[in-house]
Amino acid sequence: MNDLERHVIQQILTVEAADFSELTTQLSQLAVVSRHATGVGVYTNFSPTADLEPCHSCPSVMRLGQHVVAYIGAKESLGGFVLYVDDGIITTLEGYIYEGQWPDDALQHFRLH
């Protein structure tokens, strides 16, 4: 998991899922299995380690991220993220840009609010 993904997930969980602390512990137990660039964003898919405990208090389907705003790239393009949690396990992070193309320098330059 790269720094952008880690910071975004931590921010989303802090802002929108503080009641589900089990999700925060999953961060160290997730491996990136694929990334798919769409031109206007990117999907990062995760696979849990064998010993990962699902969040038993979480709803079976959660889509988080509506309260986190991102400024991505050196030009600070406005973007957002959606964190997918299925059956208590973080499965996917979707990043998107509102206008134009996903910046090539997104990993080097980003701010979250």
Score class of each variant (00 low, 15 high):
M1K: 04
M1H: 10
D3C: 02
L4D: 02
E5I: 07
R6P: 02
H7P: 04
H7W: 04
H7K: 10
H7C: 06
V8A: 09
V8M: 08
I9R: 11
I9L: 14
Q11F: 00
I12A: 09
L13R: 02
T14E: 06
E16A: 05
A17T: 03
A17N: 09
A17D: 04
A18W: 09
A18I: 09
F20Y: 15
T24Q: 14
T24A: 12
T25N: 13
Q26N: 06
L27N: 07
S28G: 08
S28E: 13
L30K: 06
A31V: 10
A31K: 11
A31C: 03
V33H: 01
S34H: 05
S34L: 05
R35I: 07
R35L: 06
R35G: 06
H36A: 14
T38K: 08
G39W: 14
V40H: 11
V40G: 14
G41R: 06
G41F: 04
T44I: 15
T44C: 10
F46V: 05
S47E: 12
S47D: 05
S47M: 10
P48R: 07
T49L: 08
T49P: 01
D51P: 01
L52Q: 13
E53L: 12
P54Y: 00
S60Q: 13
M62P: 09
M62V: 10
R63I: 09
R63T: 08
G65Q: 12
V69P: 00
V69K: 02
Y71M: 07
Y71P: 01
Y71L: 07
Y71V: 03
I72H: 07
G73T: 06
G73R: 03
G73P: 04
A74K: 13
K75T: 15
E76I: 03
E76Y: 01
E76N: 14
E76K: 15
G79C: 04
G80F: 04
G80Y: 05
F81N: 04
F81E: 01
V82M: 10
Y84D: 13
Y84S: 13
V85L: 00
D86S: 14
G88A: 15
G88S: 09
I89N: 14
I90A: 04
T91G: 00
T92I: 07
T92K: 15
E94A: 08
I97M: 12
E99Y: 03
E99A: 00
G100K: 14
D104M: 09
D105M: 06
L107V: 04
H109G: 01
R111V: 02
L112F: 01
L112P: 01
H113K: 07
